[in-house]
Computed example of a mutant assay.
Amino acid sequence: MATLREAIERQTALALACGALHPIETAHTFIDDGGMRFYVRVAGNLARKEAARLTPQTVVASGSQPPRDPFLPYEPDLFVGDLTPTHVALLNKFNVIDQHLLIVTRRYEPQEAVLDAADFTALIAALREIDGLAFYNGGAAAGASQPHKHLQMVPLPLAGEGPHVTPLEALLGSAQTVHGARPIAIVPGLAFRHAFARLDLGRGKGITDDAVHVALDCYRALLDAAGVPAIDVGGVAHQGAPYNLLVTRQWMLVVPRTAECVEGISVNSLGFAGSFFVRNAAQLQTLTQLGPMTALERVSVAR
């Protein structure tokens, strides 16, 4: 039986060959700021992605007609495999990072719904096979571009070279516990509101109820500590504020959000891990002058 990584590699080759996958070519540079070395990708050509936004299937014909859900049905050529009975793994059609995986609910669920045990079962299944960074953009203000619930995962390292960690790891060693009942911590180098916790999702091959409950309980505690309430919407728990979630095998981080962009630069979960994507040289200059840490502060809640 093929591993998840083998399935991703095989499907990537097939999707490239048939034209279903459209990687965005980038150059890269580094910006040192606030004790982190941020990895910044600069787009080389966005023409195909821009054109795709204008295709008939993505255009809303009238104000009463919602935009098409790209995951119902999903493109067969982007299908990597079944992760669990409730989630499938798909390739990100317009990927900036190689082997960028989408973890998508089989049935429609709103992106603003609070993550549940089924979501964490699928997330852990992916992380057990691939040492990566999983993340969730909770709402449009947090960088979510689709309303259908989906987590995402990219392999480590984010820079494609160097230590097998995220740039954020440079600050995590100084994390200070603030909630004794559960080891919730803050990271002194992060000037915006957040909640951080260490955990171990890498042991064992099977997905046990205990592992799922530990991750789910940690997530709920982080939301609470970060000031992201759960609200009832039609009998389903939804987030009461936008936020980003980052998860590796070793830790979990929640960051509440106030805005999706700063100076026209979109910021999603990857920004808080230390990875930015800018569309052109002008945006790179803006980010360099502003500073990545200041950019993160301006789209987040003050601590």
Results as ranks from 00 to 15, higher is better:
residue 99 Q to E: 09
residue 287 L to C: 08
residue 286 T to L: 15
residue 16 L to S: 06
residue 146 Q to K: 04
residue 150 H to T: 04
residue 21 L to I: 04
residue 117 A to S: 14
residue 226 A to T: 04
residue 82 D to S: 03
residue 29 T to K: 10
residue 48 R to P: 01
residue 277 F to V: 00
residue 192 F to R: 02
residue 230 A to F: 00
residue 167 P to G: 03
residue 286 T to N: 13
residue 135 F to E: 00
residue 104 V to G: 08
residue 303 R to N: 10
residue 119 D to E: 09
residue 64 S to I: 09
residue 36 M to D: 01
residue 136 Y to H: 12
residue 197 A to I: 13
residue 16 L to P: 06
residue 205 K to Q: 12
residue 193 R to P: 12
residue 56 P to S: 06
residue 226 A to V: 02
residue 56 P to Y: 05
residue 27 A to E: 15
residue 179 H to R: 14
residue 74 Y to I: 02
residue 285 Q to A: 15
residue 27 A to M: 13
residue 71 F to N: 03
residue 146 Q to N: 01
residue 262 V to H: 01
residue 276 F to K: 00
residue 47 A to P: 04
residue 205 K to R: 11
residue 202 G to T: 14
residue 228 V to N: 07
residue 71 F to H: 04
residue 266 S to P: 09
residue 35 G to F: 14
residue 282 A to F: 14
residue 91 L to V: 13
residue 161 E to K: 01
residue 128 R to V: 06
residue 72 L to D: 10
residue 194 H to R: 14
residue 241 A to P: 13
residue 264 G to Y: 10
residue 182 R to Y: 11
residue 19 G to H: 11
residue 217 D to M: 11
residue 91 L to F: 07
residue 61 A to H: 07
residue 16 L to E: 10
residue 50 E to R: 15
residue 86 T to S: 03
residue 132 G to A: 05
residue 176 Q to P: 08
residue 244 N to C: 15
residue 111 Q to G: 10
residue 219 Y to C: 08
residue 38 F to A: 14
residue 64 S to N: 13
residue 127 L to D: 09
residue 9 E to C: 07
residue 104 V to H: 08
residue 1 M to D: 03
residue 255 V to H: 01
residue 118 A to W: 01
residue 245 L to N: 05
residue 251 W to D: 02
residue 49 K to S: 08
residue 51 A to L: 14
residue 243 Y to S: 08
residue 19 G to C: 11
residue 119 D to W: 01
residue 173 G to A: 02
residue 288 T to S: 15
residue 11 Q to I: 08
residue 301 V to Y: 04
residue 27 A to H: 11
residue 20 A to S: 14
residue 115 L to Y: 00
residue 40 V to M: 05
residue 72 L to V: 07
residue 298 R to T: 06
residue 157 P to H: 03
residue 246 L to S: 04
residue 225 A to Q: 01
residue 203 R to I: 10
residue 96 V to C: 11
residue 230 A to T: 06
residue 203 R to Y: 05
residue 215 A to S: 14
residue 53 R to A: 12
residue 48 R to T: 05
residue 303 R to S: 08
residue 80 V to C: 07
residue 48 R to Y: 00
residue 246 L to D: 03
residue 102 L to D: 02
residue 287 L to I: 11
residue 172 L to P: 01
residue 48 R to E: 08
residue 95 N to Q: 12
residue 111 Q to R: 07
residue 295 A to M: 15
residue 268 N to R: 12
residue 219 Y to R: 11
residue 259 A to H: 12
residue 62 S to H: 14
residue 107 R to F: 10
residue 110 P to A: 14
residue 148 H to S: 11
residue 24 I to W: 02
residue 44 G to S: 02
